[in-house]
């Protein structure tokens, strides 16, 4: 079946089964590999993208449910690493292996939309969907606070 998708402001048509997870459409059909496969069951957050500005797990979102909506992946967050979260991530040297970081950054960007000046409890609550096996958590926390400062000028 053909599905029309809006990803990072561009339109794409993909021919896949309706139950195909958005994750694999983004990665295999659109060739955007920044969004990662980690678990396939919405338990690690590596596949986090935004749909209409809200974070979702693309591994358990069917492609059919994303039609007509604005999908943003890590590649669409900014053109030049200029999103406050990306700036803060670079300042704090957050990533180690980096594999989970697309999902962490997308989750953090969504968190800051919801809580422009987040508390540690906000971060604990909204970032605990995302696993990091390198243990970058304390730097993630610091970078989210820093990104909030950057966003507010």
């Amino acid at each position: 079946m053909a599905f029309d998708l809006n990803v990072n402001g561009a339109s794409y048509t993909v021919d896949v089964e309706p139950e195909t997870p958005l994750l694999w459409v983004i990665r295999d059909n659109l060739g955007m590999t920044g969004t990662k496969y980690g678990c396939g069951i919405a338990k690690c957050g590596a596949c986090t993208v935004h749909i209409d500005g809200k974070k979702v797990f693309s591994c358990t979102t069917k492609v059919s449910a994303a039609v007509g909506k604005e999908i943003t992946t890590i590649e669409g967050l900014s053109e030049d690493n200029s999103h406050p979260v990306q700036i803060a991530w670079i300042e704090e040297d957050v990533p180690q292996c980096g594999y989970c970081q697309s999902g962490q950054i997308m989750a953090a960007a969504a968190l800051l939309e919801q809580h422009p000046s987040p508390s540690d409890l906000n971060i604990d609550t909204l970032m605990s969907d995302n696993i990091c096996r390198c243990g970058t958590y304390s730097r993630i926390r610091k970078a989210i606070h820093r990104a909030a400062e950057i966003a507010q000028g």
Partner: peptide
């Protein structure tokens, strides 16, 4: 780190 810029944008 030299690899950081590549790891914040996919």
């Amino acid at each position: 780190r030299l690899d950081t810029p590549l790891k914040v944008n996919g």
